[in-house]
């Protein structure tokens, strides 16, 4: 059974038809890269998977939970779905440790001591164990994004959604973040990434989904799809980004 199941999802912003019937099944442990031009609906699709955005029609089921745009359901979903953003969105008034421990304490109801152990674990995983008492502003962009990943991992999610998480980084900092993703993929974490990193999509990803005008235009095994695009739109897109 698939971990994420998207059935005929439509999304309108006013009269703007942004998602035009998306169907996707994503299994546990898959690494799926969503590519496509700006405005094709990639972020919107991602945000419909964890209830950050309400879809207009269709259905999304994650980890056997129906995704509905409702505070209580989103709280429940947060234990299965994590999300990392392009702009990090760390809490600037809290230390790295506090950033990570907050949700485990409030949502998973863990005692301080257990939350602390988890914070140390996830920070070690992203290679930032020594930064637990730093504030976000004291870290580089790459480090901040790794903390944001660690913060999501602390909720022990089954799937991690990443929306262009390296796009805001200086080129020399992209590698360290991709490395963390690669490690997670190797551990069997399910990843759904909106990305422009074609090499990563091909080498680490299992599957590529090319979105165009609110539709899944092409999809399949990452190496095959990227090597042999079947549509002129995808060929054009690949040529443009490479």
């Amino acid at each position: 059974m698939s971990l994420v199941s998207i059935n005929n999802v439509h999304k309108y912003y006013g009269s703007n038809h942004v998602l035009k019937g998306i169907n996707l099944e994503i299994g546990a442990g898959e690494v799926v890269s969503i590519i496509g031009r700006s405005g094709s609906g990639k972020s919107t699709l991602l945000r419909c998977i964890n209830g950050l955005e309400a879809y207009s029609e269709g259905g999304v089921v994650v980890d056997q939970m129906e995704v509905v745009y409702d505070d209580r359901q989103i709280r429940k979903l947060s234990k299965s779905v994590g999300m990392v953003f392009q702009s990090f969105n760390l809490f600037p008034h809290l230390t790295v440790g506090q950033n990570i421990m907050l949700a485990p304490k409030l949502v998973r109801k863990l005692p301080e001591s257990e939350a602390k152990v988890i914070a140390q674990e996830v920070l070690a995983k992203v290679g930032l164990a020594e930064k637990i008492d730093s504030y976000p502003a004291e870290l580089s962009g790459g480090q901040q994004q790794r903390v944001a990943i660690a913060r999501s991992l602390a909720m022990n999610p089954k799937v991690l959604l990443c929306d262009e998480i390296t796009s805001a980084l200086d080129p020399e900092l992209v590698g360290e973040v991709l490395k963390v993703l690669e490690d997670l993929a190797a551990e069997g974490m399910t990843l759904i990434l909106v990305t422009h990193e074609m090499n990563f999509a091909r080498d680490v990803g299992d599957r590529v989904i090319f979105m165009h005008q609110g539709l899944v235009w092409e999809e399949g095994d990452s190496k095959t799809v990227l090597a042999n695009p079947q549509t002129p739109e995808l060929s054009k897109f690949i040529n443009a980004v490479l």
């Binding site: 964890n50 950050l52 505070d71 989103i74 709280r75 429940k76 979903l77 947060s78 234990k79 779905v81 994590g82 999300m83 953003f85 702009s87 990090f88 969105n89 760390l90 809490f91 600037p92 008034h93 907050l102 949700a103 409030l106 949502v107 944001a148 913060r151 999501s152 909720m155």
Partner: peptide, 25 residues
């Protein structure tokens, strides 16, 4: 807005977000 979105993704409720994230800042 990203502060709200990140908090919601972590499962915090409206009041928890207000209390721990928005109001202190």
């Amino acid at each position: 807005r990203g502060q709200w979105e990140a908090s919601r993704c972590l499962g915090l409720s409206y009041f928890e977000i207000m209390r721990h994230i928005i109001l202190p800042q």
